[in-house]
Design a protein around this nucleic acid. Structure first.
Ligand code: FES
Ligand code: FES
Lengths: 147, 147
DNA sequence: TGTATTCCCGACTAAATCACTCGACATTGT
DNA sequence: ACAATGTCGAGTGATTTAGTCGGGAATACA
């Protein structure tokens, strides 16, 4: 499994923040409830996202978390690499994007290609798009229900 | 990490068998030495590959392992799914390829796409191609060395 | 000043998975 | 018979996953 709950939950949290942008800080407890993430676990993920500059947090009553940048400027790739570390599908293609030594193992080129394609796709998706997608889906569900 | 040593070593072993096709059974010890895999570990991987019909094994002196099918008919995807189980990059897209319930999590569609692309690529690569690639690389190395 | 609210941080843990090893056993060629 | 080979399952130490817990720090407000 390339993506664990760290990455999944973390992205869920950012989607939640993006959805409530401009409404002031959003509290951990609200994110946890809406996105079905254990609150005390979410805590660690928010800490990581703060360390890497994705969110700003304020304490005290009325405090909470907000995006540090516009949702359109936050790439899914960067979020996931912050939370999960390298997204390499196999150890040997981790960082070394240079094709210096094809080396020993005859299947490495296949994974290089897959990795690059994956990173490209993840680069092309922003928080803004994820939120839009979600809204579209909600609207569809509402229509289906009303019928 | 999507692919562990199981998948990597297992494919290495099959590449070795493909390279020595038609020369009679290849022994575990030879594969292990040539491909840098612990012999007693390789044992388990060969067992799995046998269960799923990729290789045939014979005991006794002069025994060993051979491919059960032509290298051109063995897709990398099938080998890896035999050794690793599902190659889904995230749990929720494991088997359910049907897009029945987009459900809760707003990033699932991204991973669906990545998963499908990955499976397509892995479907398009056969053992025969891996061997050819390896031979090409060996030839290049020889040329470079001779200069 | 006191108190409630919220985030911050590190320690701890149970369960699962990984990457193997080891030993007993089965089969086969000479 | 015996040596060479594969077959099988149990066991193991290290690492990762998916959390929990508790104490502390900052802030708003009365
Ligand atoms: S060692 Fe990287 S693909 Fe085999
Ligand atoms: S639950 Fe599958 S992508 Fe979030």
């Amino acid at each position: 499994m390339l993506i664990s709950t760290k990455g999944d939950y973390g992205v869920r949290a950012l989607i939640d923040l993006a959805k409530h942008e401009g409404e002031g800080p959003v509290q951990r407890a609200d994110i946890a409830r809406r996105r079905q993430v254990p609150e005390s676990y979410l805590d660690h993920l928010l800490a990581q996202l703060r360390r890497d500059g994705f969110i700003r947090s304020t304490r005290g009553p009325g405090g909470g978390h907000e995006l540090a940048r516009s949702p359109a400027d936050v790439r899914l790739l960067d979020v996931l690499e912050s939370l999960e570390g390298s997204l390499a599908p196999i150890g040997c293609v981790a960082d070394v994007t240079d094709s210096g030594q094809e080396s020993l193992c005859g299947q490495r080129w296949v994974w290089q290609g897959i990795y690059e394609n994956m990173r490209e796709r993840l680069s092309g998706v922003t928080l803004a798009e994820l939120v839009e997608h979600e809204r579209d889906h909600e609207r569809d569900a509402a229509v289906n229900y009303s019928i």
